[in-house]
Design a protein around this nucleic acid. Sequence first.
DNA 1: GTACAGGCAGTAT
DNA 2: ATACTGCCTGTA
Length: 300
Amino acid sequence: MSMKAECFNPELTINSGQMFLWQKKKDAWYGIHADHVLKLSIDDQHADKKEGRIKYDSFPEDRGWEKRLFRMDDDIDKILNIISFDPLVRSSVMRYPGLRVMRQDPIQCMFSFLCASNINIQRIRKILFNLCNRFGKKMTVDGDQFFMFPRPRDLHAANIAEIVNCGTGYRAKSIKMLASKIHNREIVPQELIRMSYEDAKRSLLDIYGIGDKTADCILLFSLEKLEAFPIDTWIARIISNKYEILLGKNNMGTSSLRHHLSHQQYRFLSSRMRMHFGAYAGYAQQYLYYYSRHIAGRKW
DNA sequence: GTACAGGCAGTAT
DNA sequence: ATACTGCCTGTA
């Protein structure tokens, strides 16, 4: 069976819960990516042609951003074939053609998932847009105003109260502490990228407010660790329903899995899934995650 | 009112 | 190691 890379679907990928700061205006999608506004427009006039149907722009210009953001440098045919040995992943790959893992800006990704704990996607978006509006630089694109993602130094300099006012709640302390660590170069994204998965994960877990799940999201979506397998409530649900066989006999009841995962349980499950899917477990996770939310009827 | 949402840290045992 | 708790805040 061959998977077709040309069926890449940017709209589906943007809306798959990996990235939070994209919005649709008229017939185009606009995304905040660090200090750039990215624009993706569907050219309906050329809908009959496969090539060049999607137009990619960036402000300021940044040629080839789509290749980096959507990981077009991955050998997607190979990856999908490898993870499709698993029947459920295989059916998800066929069911959601064009879904990809994104390669986000590491700093934006860290703050985004740091904000994501204990809330739903709508609220994550709201908080992040508020932070941009309050602390980010303004840019006008196509007559609309956009606010870039805040720089760590600006969040580092902010009052906790100002951050709380963006709707972050108790996350404000974590945001400020992460900003300080990046500003002081205690955390350097390029170094984390060079490290192994395990070493980079340990570094992330040292950051206040970052636990197993958040760390794995950052590793997968921005630090080149495609073996990372984040387990959130949706993935936990699908594991308990469909992958009981991988859980081991006496380890945990599938019921406890739906509620809270201890650190030990998370480590165990995550490494089991990594053993099962291999070096591209993160891609498998993304397809399973999408499937799990889709069958639950979530509207993203 | 109160339960819940893509977790996490802190404390006691 | 595990069990249990509180946490900001918006929405149903």
